[in-house]
Amino acid sequence: MASFSEYVFPETIEEAYALNQKRSSVIVAGNMWLRMCGLRKKTAIDLSRLGLDGITEEGDAFTLGAMATLRDLETHPALAREYGGAFGEALSPIVGTQFRRTATVGGSVYSRFGFSDVSALLLALDARVLLHARGETPLRDYQREPWDRDVVLGVRIPKGRRAAARSVRLCSTDLPLLVCAASLGPDGLRLALGARPGRAMIVAEGLPADADEAAFAAIARDVPLGGNRRASEDYRRRVAPVLMARAAAAVRGEERA
């Protein structure tokens, strides 16, 4: 259990940011995984009253507020239209509808869990993280950084790409043994792998739309993969090109889930 002795609703983002500079503070987003980590803090900072829960479409991008829930993403008609149902498909294996109704984008992005289906999909879309102090930062960089004290305000994803994700799981709603997300745009095909089991990362970019199995096999040979209690490195390496090919086929519109 996480414990804290004080629960604060900041009225402005500045206030939230200032509170979060103390080591004794922690931001509460969806409170899904946070409660399991045994953290002991003095102050919980609740972002739910800062209007960060919107999903907005502006110009050539969508902005997903940090407090938008996974269920919001999954059921958002414009997102579904733009990305070919990728959010619904990629997020629906996560635990259950009730869970996804309170789990947030910001919580997923900030935590950078290796098993995150969310991170893999957002990486494939080359999302940018909107941070209060630092401003806009590529997710691909943010993914590699240690946890810091900046406040995630949201995520921006470019339009004009089709996306899809494919995963292997021990059973439905389980954490993935490996997940591959793909997106296809004018600059070609981008692939991200999650549950490597380390943090998700982009493993290929600018691939031709019709990249073939040999190309995926070559990528999979060099991707940093590891083993954990759920699956061995060997298994992940065998399955990686399969998921890449399937995700790629899906964004090309050749294969349904």
């Binding site: 021990l170 043994l177 061995s232 298994y235 399955v239």
Partner: peptide, 8 residues
């Protein structure tokens, strides 16, 4: 009978 045991 995990996917891994089946595949490998």
């Amino acid at each position: 009978i995990t996917p891994e045991k089946v595949l490998l």
